[in-house]
């Protein structure tokens, strides 16, 4: 009887070894840095001509610092989003001519100030799960009642709210959530698979929003210095006036349980306005 119990205990310990190894990987102060580059091109509809001009890509640096560890293997993290001022892109659009240097300096200085004001407070907490998903804690419910307010009072409250650091942090957390939603879903589903081999196919459904992703393992390769599995994902979203199709490739390190990269292209169609858009997103682990 004792031997049987011992055997059970050994099996139990062995079966949890991968998780323990993963939990031991992180310690407070460890940092992950992702770079996110996104670009949107729109067509159709009835917007001013400048809206259709090619837009420069928007680049962000997402610094994720481990602050503490939960017993279940989840790491609590603090995320800071840094969006460098695109000086070159703006400078290239400024005119030349006499006295241009002084004038352009004023414009650049003003643009930089506005940019920095808009990109303050982009920090919030998130959780890094044992599967490598990065989940931001978001609470989007209105924090103030508007019942009985006049339109002027309502406007004043809205203006005050959107300028607050809390609101800016909430915006950043939502942006982060959107960036990681697809790779998170894929990483979490990988964590629930017994094995992953090229050619495997499964469907992932998101409890949060009902989204469905058809995932195919297309292969294994080295990506940014890591041995990763390459997962292709296709999804379709249908709303009353908007439909969107997304094709993505996620690079996932199954040993370290990390999202190493994700490339996605989303084609959206706003039927009500006739506007279409194509958004390209590239997320890569830099460190």
């Amino acid at each position: 009887m004792r031997q049987k119990h011992t055997l059970i205990a050994i099996v139990a310990v062995l079966s949890t070894c991968p998780l323990i190894a993963q939990m031991a990987t992180w310690k407070p102060g460890d940092t992950l840095i992702y770079e996110h580059v996104t670009q949107t091109q729109i067509s159709g509809g009835h917007l001013p001509p400048q809206a259709y001009a090619p837009q420069p890509p928007a680049t962000s640096s997402l610094r994720v610092t481990i602050t503490s560890l939960d017993p279940d293997g989840t790491a609590l993290t603090h995320v800071v989003i840094d969006r460098p001022f695109p000086e070159k892109e703006i400078a290239s659009k400024l005119g030349g001519g006499p006295l241009a240097a002084a004038r352009n300096n004023v414009i650049l200085s003003s643009s930089r100030k506005t940019w920095e004001e808009q990109n303050r407070y982009k920090e919030f907490d998130a959780r890094l799960t044992p599967e490598g998903a990065l989940l931001a804690a978001i609470d989007n419910t209105p924090q103030h009642t508007t019942e009985g307010m006049s339109p002027a009072q309502l406007r004043d409250q809205m203006v005050a709210e959107v300028q607050s650091p809390e609101y800016q942090a909430k915006l950043a957390a939502n942006e982060f959530d959107g960036t990681f939603r697809l790779p998170n879903a894929v990483a979490l589903s990988c964590g629930k698979r017994k094995s992953i081999a090229p050619g495997d196919f499964w469907r992932v459904t998101s409890k949060a929003d009902g989204a469905a992703y058809d995932v195919t393992v297309s292969g294994k390769q080295s990506y940014r210095g890591r041995d990763v599995i390459v997962l292709d994902s296709k999804s379709h979203a249908e709303h009353p006036n908007i439909s969107a199709d997304t094709e993505a490739t996620v690079y996932y390190d199954p040993q370290a349980h990390l999202i190493v990269g994700a490339h996605s292209v989303t084609n959206s169609d706003v039927q009500a306005t006739g506007m279409k858009s194509t958004t390209t997103s590239d997320l890569n682990l830099k460190q």
């Binding site: 879903a185 589903s189 629930k192």
Partner: peptide, 13 residues
């Protein structure tokens, strides 16, 4: 049917 895996991508406290 293809295997379907449900995941929760929210960080609910």
């Amino acid at each position: 049917s293809p295997e379907t895996i449900e995941v929760d991508t929210t960080a609910t406290l």
